[in-house]
Design a protein around this nucleic acid. Sequence first.
RNA 1: GCGGGAAUAGCUCAGUGGUAGAGCAUCAGCUUCCCAAGCUGAGGGUCGCGGGUUCGAAUCCCGUUUCCCGCUCCA
Length: 479
Amino acid sequence: MSDLFDKIVSLCKQRGFIFQSSEIYGGLSATYDYGPLGVELKRNVKDRWWEAMVYQHDDIVGLDAAIFMHPKTWEASGHTEAFNDPLIDDKASGNRYRADELIEDYIRGLRMDDEQERAEAVHKRLVRALNSDDTNDALYAIIQDEEIRAPDSGAFDWTEVRQFNLMFETHMGPLKEEGSELFLRPETAQGIFVNFHNVREPVRKHVPFGIAQIGKAFRNEIVARQFVFRMREFEQMEMQYFVKPGTELDRFAEWKQKRMDWHQSLGIRPSKLRFHEHEQLSHYANAAEDIQYEFPIGWKEVEGIHSRTDFDLSRHQEYSGKKMTYYDPFEEERYIPYVVETSVGLDRTILMLLSDAYYEEEVRGDTRSVLRFHPEIAPTRAAIFPLVKKEGLPEIAHRIEDDLRDHFNVLYDERGSMGKRYRRQDEAGTPFCITVDFDTLDDQTVTVRDRDSMEQDRVAIDQLATYIHDKTATWSVDG
RNA sequence: GCGGGAAUAGCUCAGUGGUAGAGCAUCAGCUUCCCAAGCUGAGGGUCGCGGGUUCGAAUCCCGUUUCCCGCUCCA
């Protein structure tokens, strides 16, 4: 783990951004809590995303679907099937296969080669394996004994057969009885798909239009690590854009660019962002690219943009028996819309912002740690200090604090020396520090110190809100 | 999940069988007060948790939890 990453994790704990869940009980794996500063940062990012997606597009509306969904949802989406099976990985290619299907394919191969007896023997063994108490080991033994090779790489280099159960299970109702099993959603997207008509009809939208949602999702990851990068409980910001089949790739290109622009609008350095094309597409996608950020731990995915075809709506139509078609009154045609999805990890975005904003610099032989957040997402917009805590300066500072509260999240601090107070706010990422001094008593002006340049401006008290608004609007990464 | 390493104050760490420490941070007071100034003082740790060995365990042994590194998946 890199030094920089460790420093960010320490700072998060020390300043109250993010810390481990249930720490007094020894912590809970891959689960983190957002403290006072973290929750402000997170809210600001959510607000900014909602503003960019919902308020800036008249063809996108919001939704807040429940975390619990009918179990059939996950059968339709393919999650039940894909994550409740005996899976085996080819170490050579990294591809993952269903162990039982691998063996079935092998049996088909034997039959094609006219080795009927052997095929029958393996088939019997497969049936026994699937009905045994120890299916995984039994399947693994067949693959080993028959020296079944990976279909793509031709390699014979397998992991163990493992039962994957990616979804968290729980029970509806106080009795844990048969048939009451529910899953915590592993993605927010399905809440959008199943509500396609419920949303579209009341808001009278025509295709193309989108539905946006921010919410928690849960995945029982085999390996969940690297701070908030991969958690078992995490938050997604997703938008599903419904389009006419045949137009999806143009929309895909459009959303790719819009989403990249959004990340840059947060103040993220463009050189640290890139697109990354998927090498293999999911069964439901006909185009997929990620937006990656260069974290201190390497290039990692922050957002996925996928052209999901009509897979999801078709499957829900099939499993629910309800029509998921859209009638276009202008073209007078009926079809199941295609979907372009933008899905960004909120916690990953937070980690990206922390990573990108963190700087250490030498100031008069001393090291200054500073989080150079975009002022609009900084947990605290401005801090107000009296130069000394007497001679009436605190009273003036408190009056400024009260005035600015109507505009921004602000904070008052009179403890410690000026230098110390500035440094504290640097580590919290507060972009502006306002100091009431003795001149204020005569001319009603204060100093405003800029977090990034450490330079000060003299500003009239009644101009402070305007000054901060202007500085916020013109802020850029390079200052 | 498998293999390897680690866990001592809010943070970073020292302490290898004999009464728990440092720096930073936090708090109070003084101060000539605009970039972590100085001085004085204070609070805070059953050394991750449980068990064992021992006269005595932060230190040795076992288990467990959490974290880190590799394999893997994704938001």
